[in-house]
Amino acid sequence: MIVRIMGEGQWKVDDAHLAELNKLDDELLEEMEGGDEAGFRRTLGALLDAVRRLGGPLPDDALAPSELILPAPDATLAEVRDMLSDDGLIPG
């Protein structure tokens, strides 16, 4: 799957890593619902780091559609709330 981190670029991440990313997404959703700003920051950073660690960056000139779009590392809680679906940032 192709994952875009806003403001950074795209990574190709194997579907086998979806469960790990979903676990972090679930934690992020809980922290957002509870208004835990520190937890939100920590888990958003962990989610983005996992995409970078597990995936390979696509060249800047690649024109591949993103299957997932994640917020920038400095996104606010309100900005991320606007991006959420019922399943969080990552469907499933």
Rank of each mutant, 00 (worst) to 15 (best):
E33V: 02
L21D: 01
A50V: 00
L24R: 14
L29I: 11
L24M: 11
L48R: 09
A50M: 06
E31V: 09
A50T: 03
L29C: 02
L24G: 08
R52L: 03
G39S: 08
A46W: 07
E37H: 15
G55L: 15
E37L: 12
L54P: 05
D26K: 12
E30S: 06
K23E: 07
V51F: 04
N22V: 07
T43R: 12
R42M: 15
L24A: 11
A50D: 09
D36E: 15
D26F: 10
N22Y: 10
R53C: 10
E27F: 04
M32Y: 07
L29E: 12
A38F: 11
E33S: 03
G34F: 00
A50P: 13
R41N: 05
E31M: 13
G39L: 12
D26P: 04
N22H: 14
A46T: 04
L44N: 03
A46R: 03
G35N: 13
E37M: 04
L29K: 06
D49A: 14
F40K: 09
L47C: 13
V51W: 02
A46V: 06
R52C: 04
G45C: 08
R41Y: 02
E27H: 12
L21E: 01
L29T: 05
R53Y: 15
E31L: 14
R41W: 00
L24P: 13
L28G: 00
D25Y: 02
T43M: 03
T43D: 12
V51S: 11
L24D: 11
L28T: 00
D36W: 02
E31Q: 05
L54Y: 15
E33F: 00
R52S: 03
G45I: 06
L24V: 01
D36L: 06
R52D: 00
D36N: 06
D49G: 14
E37A: 13
R42W: 08
A50S: 14
G45P: 07
R53F: 04
L21Q: 08
D49N: 08
M32L: 02
R53L: 03
F40C: 03
L24N: 09
G45V: 11
L48A: 07
D36C: 09
A46G: 08
L44T: 04
L29P: 02
L48V: 13
N22F: 11
K23Y: 08
L47A: 07
G34E: 06
L44R: 10
F40M: 11
D36Y: 12
A38D: 05
R52G: 11
L29Y: 05
G34W: 00
G55A: 15
L21P: 01
L21C: 02
E27Q: 14
E31A: 13
E33N: 01
